[in-house]
Computed example of a mutant assay.
Amino acid sequence: MVLPDVVLSAASDVLVALEAARLRVVTAESCTGGLVAGALTHQAGSSAAVSGGFVTYSNAMKQTCLGVPEAMLVQWGAVSEAVALAMAFGALQAADDADVSVAITGIAGPDGGSAEKPVGLVWFAVMRRGREARAERRMFAGGRIAVRAQAVGHALGMVLGEV
């Protein structure tokens, strides 16, 4: 998937802000499949502000890589506020050199949605060391590509808000 110029421009803005603040970011992604990390590392010199990223598409990977408790996944489901927050926390725990984490978990479609959790539903969480994490729920319109691109843009905006 090729990200729109507006998303790549937002990633550039995030990198400039992170570098100016001497902060580093780590991503924990599910439905975006690494696109946030990809947008950030698309920029030359991004290693100054990007620690790395986790693509934890399956529940097993969320547990193994990020320490998301199985009980939480069973109770709330992967697409939930609780899991997004746990992903953000786990990413920061796993990346000692990161200061900010952003997590994304959602249903990009075209399948997988339900009445309770429709296609386009995405949960985000952002966390900066020493601060309380915050989560946001968004509903995005369009097909899989549009949902994922909008999710990347929103995640970048959340990171910028923590700088």
Rank of each mutant, 00 (worst) to 15 (best):
E136K: 09
M127L: 15
A37P: 02
R134E: 13
V74S: 14
F140K: 07
A49I: 01
D13H: 09
V163G: 06
A135D: 12
R137W: 02
F124L: 10
A88W: 00
Q93S: 13
Q63P: 00
A48F: 04
G157Q: 13
D5T: 03
V55D: 01
A98S: 14
I104F: 03
G38P: 02
A151P: 06
V102P: 02
R138Y: 05
L40S: 07
L35T: 06
D96I: 09
T105Y: 02
Q150I: 04
E136R: 14
A78L: 06
A125D: 05
E70G: 06
R131H: 13
R138K: 14
S30K: 07
L73K: 06
L92N: 07
S46W: 02
A17Q: 13
M1C: 14
Y57H: 13
F140H: 13
D111A: 14
L73T: 08
Q150M: 11
K117W: 03
A133V: 12
Y57P: 07
E136I: 01
V79G: 01
G153M: 09
A125C: 11
S80W: 01
G142C: 08
A48R: 15
L92Y: 09
V2S: 15
G106A: 10
G153A: 11
G52D: 00
M61F: 08
E70W: 08
V126F: 00
E70I: 11
E70Y: 10
L85C: 10
G45S: 08
S51P: 03
L35R: 10
V159P: 00
